[in-house]
Computed example of a mutant assay.
Amino acid sequence: MTTAAATAKGAATREAILDHAYAIACSAGLEGLSIGALAQGVGMSKSGLFAHFGSREDLQLAVLDDAARRFVAHVFQPALSRPRGLARLRAIVEQWFDWVRHADDGGCLFLAAVGEYDDRPGPQRDLLLRQDRQWRQALAHAVSLAVDNGELLADTDVEQLAFEIYALPLLVHHDAGLYGYESTVARGRRAYDRLIDTYSPH
Rank of each mutant, 00 (worst) to 15 (best):
S55G: 04
A21K: 03
K9E: 13
G54D: 12
R190H: 10
F76C: 01
P123A: 15
E15L: 12
E15Q: 15
P123Y: 01
S81M: 07
I17M: 02
D126Y: 06
A73G: 04
D132L: 05
R194K: 12
M44A: 11
L61N: 00
Q40K: 14
A25C: 03
L18D: 07
F163M: 12
A11R: 13
P83G: 00
H202G: 10
F76L: 12
E31F: 03
A167P: 01
A51Q: 12
G177Y: 05
V93G: 05
R69Y: 05
P83L: 03
G41F: 01
L178S: 09
Y181P: 07
G150I: 10
W96N: 15
D118E: 13
L89N: 06
E116T: 07
I165A: 03
A140E: 08
V72C: 03
G54W: 04
S55F: 07
R84D: 14
L18F: 06
E94K: 12
Q95P: 03
R190I: 02
C26V: 09
P78D: 00
W135T: 00
L170Y: 06
A23W: 04
S200K: 07
R120N: 10
A37P: 03
V147E: 01
E164C: 08
F71C: 00
N149F: 05
A23V: 05
H141T: 10
A154W: 03
Q60C: 08
G48S: 13
V75C: 05
Q131L: 12
H174Y: 14
D119E: 13
A25D: 01
L30V: 01
T156F: 00
H102F: 11
S200F: 05
V185H: 07
D148Y: 09
P121L: 08
Y199W: 10
P83I: 07
